[in-house]
Every structure is written in C-alpha cells, then in structure tokens.
Design a protein around this nucleic acid. Structure first.
Length: 337
DNA sequence: CTCTGCAA
DNA sequence: TTGCAGAGG
C-alpha cells in the first residue's frame, strides 16, 4: 500500500522524547488499520469482548496513545472521508484480495498451520464504520481531538501542518509527502522491535522524520516533480508504468522534467494525468482548530470495562499516563505571539 | 500493537 | 535488569 518513495527520501531517526510538547496529526485510518492488522492472537483472530465485538482498535488506541501522551505529545487524529473516484479501482482490488485471503485463512486453520493462518488473517483486515465510531468515542473520552477529512486524510494532515495547527504529521504511507506534508513522521511508536512477515527475523524500528526540503535538494526535484515520479511508479489513483520503480522514475523525471516527456520517451500513456496531479496538489480539506482536553477517567473506565470487558487494573494504569502527561519543550508556536 | 509474568 | 513467550478482550 502507498507508494515506495522510501529510497528517495532523506530520513532522520529520532527518539519519541524529542517530540515532547509537539502537536502531531495522526492519519487515523492508517493507525487503526495497523492496530487491526497486528493486535491479534496467534491464529490471527482479533481480540473481542464476550459478545464477540472486536476490541483490537480500542486496545491499540488506549495503550499506544497512552505512551505517546505520557511523553508529552499532543495528538490529533484525522479520519478519511469520501475517497476520490479515481481510487475506486484500487479499493475494489483490495476488496477482492481480502475475500481471497479470508478463504486461505480458513484453509490454513483447517490445516493447523498457525503461522500461515495469522498472515492470511492479517490480509483480511477491514476497517468497519462501527470501529471508527467506537474509536472516535474513545478519543473524545481521552480528550484527544479528531477531525473528519472531506476526502483523503493525508491531505487534511498536510493542511493542518500548513495552517500551523500541528507541528508534525504521522503516517506509515509515504503518500503523505505528495499531499504536501513537510514535517512527517513514520514509525511513531515506542516499542523497538517488529517481526518481519514470513520470517523468523526481528528488526529494530524507531520513529523517523522525513526531511522533505533536504530530500528535494538531494534529488534536485520540486514537489510537483516528485508527484510525477510517483505517478510514473503508480499511486492510489493510477496503476503506473510497468518496470518503473523509484530509481527509474527519478531518473526519468530528472531527465525530462515532468511526466509528459518521460511517457513520450517510453511510448506509454497515463490516463487522467492532470486530474491525478490535482488530487495531490489541490485536495479538499476543512479548517480545524484542535483542542486538547483532560481525559474523563470515570467514563473511559466505564466504556472500556463495562461495555467492552477490558481489565480494570490495566485500563486504570494506562489512564494514569494520560492524566500525568508531562509536555516539555516548545509548547507555543510563533503564531501564538 | 503493548502489557505482563517469569526465567536467565 | 533484560529478553522472551504468551496474553490481552
């Protein structure tokens, strides 16, 4: 998912502590999808309450965000709105893949192959509207502001950055930079190790800041040109040209300046080229002024423990981190003066 | 994903 | 104290 822009961008590894006092807009669908993919049992089944309702997303919000808030980060969550028409093909493709994975998951369970079962289960991950509503309710109780984007959440994140409402955007998807997010964080987490799929290997993962200005300087490209590189490689809105990855895409745009020249050279065509460009350059957004509030401890306990059967001791412990949040570092922006 | 309990 | 396996809901 997303675009493989990683090799082209300058990144700087950081410690979460460096973000203390900073306002961070998180791509909500991206992070919920992560929780629903990874917060699972060994055979791939999701965590549920005794009534069978999924709780993985709520667990993820409570525990991960508690650590970030405790470190002094001010989180703001941005949810996707209506997807652009040009994304329909991709969404349909994903839907079909999930149905296939569902069948393969059941087969793996039948065969007693737990490893494969988990992998296939993860590929079936679907973010349902009730999960989004439950997540929003929990965020309200925790005092964490959220906003519905009119369309792509990543574009809304970029607009919050540009309007000075937040200091950083956070997502795993590199697309975020194409929408214009200049200060952008990947791997916003505290836990160090992550298991590689299909392997018994572990890798160290730490948060990293994507330095867009430095990337542009190094690549000798501007944002419009990076968008053209991405379009040649393929984005959420177009399939891209066979055999063009980050390296070749970059070379082509460096040589021809924009996609048209490169396409002519290759003898290829990309439909809706200008429309795709404008999806990145002029994406709709809404004005939003995030307000951070203190958590409602009693109501959160009631929601998670009474409604969803979370363990009270564990929830109380996590909630202490929200209450004891210690923002350090810069708390005011230039705009406040 | 993060948390917890237990072994080294 | 650290690392790991297994649980969490």
């Amino acid at each position: 998912m997303g675009i493989q822009l990683g090799p082209l961008l300058e990144t700087r590894k950081i410690k979460v502590e460096e973000l203390s006092g900073q306002r961070v807009a998180i791509d909500g669908f991206n992070v919920l999808y992560q929780f629903l993919t990874s917060i699972r049992q060994a055979d791939g089944s999701l965590l549920t309450d005794p009534k069978g309702r999924v709780t993985s997303h709520l667990s993820g919000i409570l525990f991960r965000f508690s650590k970030l808030v405790e470190k002094g980060l001010k989180l703001c969550i941005v949810f996707d709105g209506k997807p652009p028409a040009l994304k329909k093909n991709l969404l349909e493709q994903r839907r079909r893949r999930k149905i296939k994975a569902q069948i393969e998951w059941e087969a793996a369970i039948e065969a007693g192959d737990t490893e494969t079962a988990r992998t296939k289960a993860q590929q079936t991950t679907r973010l349902e509207s009730h999960m989004i509503n439950e997540s929003k309710k929990l965020l309200d109780l925790l005092g964490i502001p959220w906003v519905d984007a009119p369309s792509e959440g990543e574009a809304q994140v970029a607009s919050l950055l540009n309007q000075g409402m937040v200091d950083y955007g956070a997502s795993q998807d590199f697309d975020t930079v194409l929408f214009g997010a200049s200060k952008f964080i990947r791997n916003l987490t505290l836990s160090g190790r992550r298991k590689l799929p299909k392997q018994q290997k572990w890798v160290e993962v730490s948060p990293e800041i994507i330095d867009l200005e430095m990337s542009f300087q190094k690549l000798e490209l501007n944002r419009e040109q990076l968008i053209d590189v991405a379009i040649l490689m393929g984005t959420d809105f177009n399939p891209g040209i066979d055999g063009v990855g980050p390296k070749r895409g970059l070379k082509l745009i460096q040589e021809f300046g924009k996609a048209e020249g490169a396409l002519e050279k290759l003898g290829k065509e990309i439909k809706n080229l200008d429309e795709i460009r404008s999806l990145f350059l002029e994406h709709p957004f809404v004005d939003f002024n995030p307000e951070w509030k203190t958590p409602n401890v009693e109501s959160t306990l009631s929601y998670l423990c009474d409604d969803f059967s979370f363990n009270k001791v564990r929830v109380e412990k996590a909630l202490e981190k929200y209450v004891d949040a210690k923002p350090r570092g810069r708390q005011f922006t230039l705009g406040d003066f």
